[in-house]
């Protein structure tokens, strides 16, 4: 665990993590970080770039690890819950940045967008440093939840309502 995750003065620590790691209990600060990293990984580059330019354009920062494209081997379980197996790979881009005060931000995001990974790492660092992007993160999370809900409602409209035809001559 890095030094940053041990901080307890981070913002959003009282929020419910959406993707709690079930295998190892994590502290609240880590849970909060998991939440914003998950939100950032799902945010397209353009939104991150625009917000960075608008609010943090004058920040001094440096690249700790240049954005790098690679893969993650996705694992499944036989029957959904049994023996593990390697399903196939997915492309992933990772990046690490350092803010001028030394705060290090990380990102691992699906796909091959280097700039998305860079901005995700920058916002991770900002959130670790002072939490000043928490409104932005909350807005993104709300938009993502809304999109998911809209889709889930369209899917719900395809649910079958079985009914039984009454047959025979009662009257």
């Amino acid at each position: 665990m890095t030094a940053h995750t041990a901080r307890t003065d981070g913002p959003g620590q009282d929020q419910n993590p959406t993707h709690q790691n079930k295998t190892a209990p994590v502290d609240q600060a880590t849970a909060a970080r998991q939440r914003w990293m998950s939100v950032l990984a799902r945010t397209p580059r353009a939104s991150l770039e625009a917000r960075w330019a608008a609010s943090y354009g004058d920040q001094k920062w440096s690249m700790l690890r240049e954005p790098q494209i690679g893969m993650v081997m996705v694992r499944g379980r036989a029957g959904g819950a049994g023996q593990r197996f390697n399903l196939g790979e997915m492309t992933v881009t990772r990046c690490a940045v350092t803010l001028s005060d030394g705060t290090v931000g990380h990102s691992y995001v699906k796909g091959r967008d280097r700039l998305q990974a860079q901005y995700a790492a920058l916002f991770d660092a900002i959130m670790l440093r002072d939490g000043s992007a928490s409104d932005f993160i909350d807005d993104l999370a709300a938009a993502q939840a809304e999109a998911k809900r809209d889709h889930a409602r369209k899917v719900a409209a395809t649910k079958v309502d079985f009914f039984t035809l009454v047959r025979g001559e009662d009257e």
Partner: peptide, 14 residues
């Protein structure tokens, strides 16, 4: 979800 060594906890990547 992956658990990068440098972080030490699981993160959701998409």
């Amino acid at each position: 979800e992956i658990e990068p060594e440098e972080l030490g906890f699981a993160i959701d990547i998409g």
